[in-house]
Design a protein around this nucleic acid. Structure first.
Lengths: 105, 105
DNA sequence: TAAAAATGCAACCATATGGTTGCATAATGT
DNA sequence: ACATTATGCAACCATATGGTTGCATTTTTA
């Protein structure tokens, strides 16, 4: 996973509206835009732009169905984000381990 | 962990310069600001502002040592971010499981 | 065939963001 | 003491961002 992709992923999650959208979608149901834009406290077009941001970051996928557009979470993006953080933590722990061995000498 | 804290954490990680800083720090050594600002391709004050953003998001801590200021990663923030993503994935998986059982009926 | 519903597109606006430069200040080395 | 080093603070600027409104388009429903 490229650095750029990771940055885009975290940037996408780093906004209250977008994170709220992701949380609602994580419950599984693929909601259409109209449903999603409610409860967000902003206009439909405002929500649309945030959803587009999630699409660009590959956090979400759009599936047109008739006149509606279903919005579905892409769990792979979440997995990649988690894996990236885990790799940072692994480097950190490795260093702590080395430091521990050094002080025990 | 509050929603706001999660948003701030991801927003902090969602920038190429800040992510680069975090990656360098994940190697363990607590670097001082001057060292960090090099290799970033921006001015010292530019780097300073990004580091401050990381401090505000609790991703990093500052420790003044003489005339220097050491910058150290706070691995707890990483753990919280990873845990948050994991909880989203858990909800997602749970839903998939329910769907599977439904179709198997 | 019309009306309504769900969405798309574009222009616009206020504010946030990422960066710069200039100068001040505190700690260190000679 | 004095020059140097590491940093802090503030003003400033261009662009990105998050939101709005208005209107056009496509699909469903009556």
């Amino acid at each position: 996973m490229s650095q750029l992709a990771v940055v885009q992923l975290f940037k996408a999650l780093g906004d209250p509206v977008r994170l709220q959208i992701v949380q609602r979608l994580s419950h599984g149901a693929a909601l259409c835009m109209g449903e999603l834009s409610k409860d967000l406290g902003i206009s439909r077009q405002g929500a649309r732009k945030q959803i587009q941001a999630l699409v660009s970051a590959n956090v979400v996928q759009l599936h047109p169905v008739g006149r509606e557009v279903k919005v579905q979470l892409d769990a792979a993006a979440l997995a990649q984000g988690r894996a990236f953080i885990a790799s940072l933590e692994a480097q950190w722990d490795q260093r702590l381990q080395a430091l521990k061995q050094f002080t025990e000498q």
